[in-house]
Design a protein around this nucleic acid. Structure first.
Lengths: 122, 122
DNA sequence: CTATATGCAAAAAGTTTGCATCTCC
DNA sequence: GGAGATGCAAACTTTTTGCATATAG
């Protein structure tokens, strides 16, 4: 079962990894594994709730072992593309409460903040 | 210039639209426009800051005209797709303040909340 | 006339699927 | 031997690019 190899890679990294990253890591460590198998395994793991999936800015699906290390959002400069990672307990609470008000459960959310950073104000 | 046609479509919708949606809308309204042109136009518009881009859950890039009429966010049911429009003064304030802390100005933001609505909880 | 914009089709990039093979029970 | 896992290659989807043509100034 390649499942454990994939999990091993994910647990060994605090970052989100794309399926292709996982495949490359396994290949690099000498494992012979097909790309399709990696995709099938991560899908299975995601359905079983063992890992979290999310899409990165390149449109790649990325995965992380589930113990939610750091939830954060992005503050992006429209002028230079500089990105700052920000924490927002207030937003988390707001998202949960507004969802609850409407009877929604299992809430997740995405937040992106755009602006012009100090170095690029006219 | 197809630029204005694309902008017209985006300004006519409060929702985020994918390039393909825009293309379909233009075709539906009788315009002869190539898909590639739509992609090129939205990229140009995004670079010039006229529209916001965001990747949706399916990995499609979606766009919205920057001067959105009424500011609101969406609460989307993962099970049935039902969407509720919600207001969130708390998030607005949070976004502004977190951006200000990092020296960002002209702040805009996008927030999407996903959950399972009352009718679709297991 | 020259430069830009457009359309079409082919190419990239990421992901999924079909199918034959291999493995473990 | 059979069920499920795996690998390879082909299919698919979304987005980008090459190139020839059409349009604008």
């Amino acid at each position: 079962m390649k499942r454990d190899m994939v999990l091993g890679v994910l647990e060994g990294s605090p970052e989100f990894l794309s399926a292709q990253d996982i495949h490359a890591a396994l290949r690099a460590s000498g494992q012979k594994v097909g790309l399709a198998t990696v995709y099938r395994v991560v899908q299975a793991l995601q359905e079983s709730g063992a890992i979290d999936a999310l899409r990165n800015e390149n449109g790649e699906l990325t995965y992380r072992s589930c113990e939610s290390t750091g939830h954060h959002h992005h503050l992006v400069c429209r002028a230079c593309g500089r990105t700052v990672e920000v924490q927002g307990p207030a937003v988390e609470r707001w998202a949960d409460s507004v969802a609850a008000e409407h009877g929604f459960a299992e809430v997740s959310h995405t937040v992106e903040v755009f602006g012009i950073c100090g170095d690029h104000r006219s």
